[in-house]
Every structure is written in C-alpha cells, then in structure tokens.
C-alpha cells in the first residue's frame, strides 16, 4: 500500500472505461515518482521525460487491451523501467540486461548538512555506511530504494525486479544485513571481523 493507492485504482478503472481526465489525475499523482525512479537508471533526464511521455501515449492508445489493477504505481514503475532500459540497450547494443539485472542503478544521496559534516566521527560513519550501500548490487539498491523511499511491498518490488516474492525478500534482507554490519562495526570495533564474515555468509 502506498498513499493514494486506492484512489489510483479507482481512477484506473475510470480510465479503462474511457475517461482521459482520470488518466490525467493518475499522471499527476505519479509523474514525479516516475521521474525520480527513472533518473536512477540513467543520467539522461531528457530520455526519462521522453519515456514518461511515451508511456502515457501508449496507455491511451492501448486502453482497450489493458486490464484492471490495484497496483497502479507498480504497473507504471515496471513499464517505465522496461522502456528506459530498452532505450539504453538500443543505443549500446547490450542484451537481456532487464532479466539479468545487469544494469546501472545509481542510488544517489542527499548532501550531508555541512554543520554536521564538521563532526568528524559523524561524517566518517555516514560515509562508511554510504560506501557500503553503494557497493550493493544494482538490484539490491533498486529494491531498497523502492522499499525505503516509496514504501512498496515485497510483492510489488518483486514484480518490478522480475523476481519471485521470496527471492526479493531475501535480497532485501541480505542488503540490510550488510548495511547493519557496517553500523555495528562502528559501535563495536572488536567484533568487526566477525560481522563482516557474518554478513558474507548470510
């Protein structure tokens, strides 16, 4: 459940029955999230905007072939990701990276408050955690982003990642464990090695 989920589902139903103003509301509810999500795959913002445009044009044109869904955001996310990656593949001649997860996902952080940054221990810790997050696989980063930023469920994330629900669940758990181990090592330096080993094997 994300905020507006029920509203989106109702609007989606109206859209399937032919209401384009319902689609314009769905667009407004989701366009900024789609843009934010899309920008994690590429630095080419124009490409992301083009894909959003193409996505909604396609929705209008194929309306009669679409079916009902109670997860509009998930549906749109899956579609926009597929479109962006398809465009990137087209220009770089890579293949099948959608299924293999062999694409780039740049998580991107907010800038650290310069006042807090002055605190050496604090900033060291943040940077350590951030580098741990950066070192996760693209799929892990994508899953955590969908989970922690948009609050999507395991099932919804699994669909976007082309995975079984159980696999996406363990993917996320492993990623969290890894970040946790960095935090723990900061607290208890003695057991540092132990946790790294633990993180590797879990």
């Amino acid at each position: 459940m994300y905020p507006n989920q029920n509203l989106d589902s109702m609007l989606w139903k109206d859209f399937l029955e032919g209401s384009e103003s319902a689609l314009s509301k769905i667009y407004l509810n989701n366009v900024n999230d789609l843009f934010a999500f899309g920008c994690k795959f590429t630095v080419d913002k124009a490409l992301v905007k083009d894909c959003i445009q193409e996505l909604f044009v396609t929705l209008i044109q194929t309306r009669t072939r679409l079916s009902e869904t109670n997860n509009v955001k998930g549906y749109l996310f899956t579609a926009i990701k597929r479109m962006i990656i398809r465009e990137m593949v087209r220009s770089s001649k890579l293949e099948n990276i959608l299924e293999s997860g062999d694409y780039r996902f740049e998580i991107g952080f907010e800038n650290i408050d310069p006042v807090e940054f002055e605190n050496d221990n604090y900033s060291k810790k943040i940077l350590a955690v951030r580098s741990a997050i950066e070192s996760l696989t693209s799929r892990q980063k994508e899953a955590l982003y969908l989970k922690f930023y948009f609050g999507l469920s395991h099932k919804e994330i699994a669909e976007i990642l082309h995975l079984e629900e159980q696999s996406s669940r363990s993917l996320i758990s492993r990623a969290i464990q890894k970040v946790r181990s960095v935090l723990k090592s900061d607290k208890k330096r003695i057991s540092k090695i132990l946790f790294v080993v633990f993180a590797r094997h879990s």
Partner: peptide
C-alpha cells in the same frame, strides 16, 4: 538508524515540465 541512512536524492520535475509532458 539504518533506515535514516537511506537519504535518497530525489529528482523532481517543474510545474512547466509536468504540463509540457502531458
């Protein structure tokens, strides 16, 4: 604490861009 470390940067469209795309 772990959750708070995921302080994602967030790209946003301007009103004009949102209008133009639609």
């Amino acid at each position: 604490e772990i959750f708070n470390h995921f302080n994602f940067a967030h790209e946003e469209l301007t009103l004009d861009e949102i209008f133009t795309i639609w």
